[in-house]
Design a protein around this nucleic acid. Structure first.
Lengths: 196, 196
DNA sequence: GTCTATAGGTTGATAGAC
DNA sequence: GTCTATCAACCTATAGAC
């Protein structure tokens, strides 16, 4: 009856495991997070994890994919929610704020993904990077429009700019605690940086 | 005789171990890098490491400290080498370039430090962070001078700015390969971002 | 200074009871 | 679906020969 409207029991358990894994992967990295610790955090025994996931690698990939897709959905959603005649800079600022909010307060998944990426087996890494490039392209198009419209400094190189701004955002979880600055403050500062 | 002019044999071995450890810590993180693998990369057996370091933690701390101090020395050196009447923006750009060059081409140590920091035991983490804050203060003072002289946008918040720019630089090892962009190009772009 | 050997504990994964 | 029990491989660290 409720197969569509509410998550099945199995799906709920799966989520509990993923939450626990994301939290531990974020804290200690891929290699040092043990399945026993993850299971304990999800209130089960290590062996039981294998009913839901075939291997540690598969679990890691699921966490990382959820991280990228969560950021992507948050950012695209925030931009789509703006009035259709919003300026490019307004859209960029909304995208900055959504990504920062997701990284800084909503989810262990995205931060776990960023920290794990270079520690996971190559095939997983490649698939995750491909998904991430798609996310990056969304920002890339916004930057391109901004340049064409002349609202950012003309001397800025688009590919450098995109990666530098991504860095500024992705690094935030490393230092942000409660500095008094909100994701919205930081997004405004980033806008200020690129504006001509 | 040569106790001062050339490194002792023991110091050379120590460096070989540190190089191997920095490379592996950078690649797979603190928890997943085994002493066996580190020893193999340094052409020795795992047990022999203990003649030079008391524990894996001590080895990790030595790598991280070398990472921070290497960045610090590179940046302060580059700024000190400028003509005494160089502008604040010139000094900032030189600092950017030195830090980026160190991160992107000179050393596994700094990148290993950045990636390991949150995976190491708390006491090590605290000591490393303290040393890192000292490094950060150097940049902070340059930003402060720039603001006082009015050469950066007045609406920029100094503490946000410092962390965002650090993020843009510290994230670079995650994406930089041979994009055609040099550390010098990136430093120029960063200068462009903050200039009023 | 570096080796071999090994202690004692943890790891990812599997098998089978319930 | 979850448990317990277990395997083989691996880990950090130590001891003692050379």
């Amino acid at each position: 009856m409720s197969t569509v409207t509410s998550p099945s029991k199995s799906a709920q358990t799966r989520t509990r495991i993923l939450d626990a894994a994301a939290s531990l992967f974020r804290q200690v990295g891929y290699g040092a997070a043990s399945l026993r610790d993850i299971a304990q955090k999800a209130d089960m025994q290590a062996g039981s994890l294998y009913y839901h996931f075939d291997s540690k690698d598969e679990l890691a990939e699921a966490v990382m994919l959820a991280g990228v897709e969560g950021s992507d959905a948050a950012v695209r959603g925030a931009v789509a929610a703006l009035s259709p005649d919003a300026s490019v800079l307004d859209r960029l600022e909304a995208a900055f704020e959504a990504h920062l909010t997701f990284l800084l307060s909503r989810s262990d998944y995205a931060v776990a993904m960023l920290r794990m990426l270079h520690q996971t087996p190559n095939s997983i890494q490649q698939r995750t990077l491909e998904r991430q490039r798609d996310f990056g392209r969304f920002f890339g198009e916004l930057f391109e429009m901004a340049k064409k419209e002349g609202v950012i400094k003309p001397a800025l190189d688009l590919s450098a700019l995109r990666m530098l701004i991504f860095g500024a955002m992705n690094w935030a979880p490393e230092w942000y605690s409660d500095s008094g600055l909100t994701p919205s403050d930081l997004a405004a500062q980033l806008r200020l940086l690129i504006e001509s």
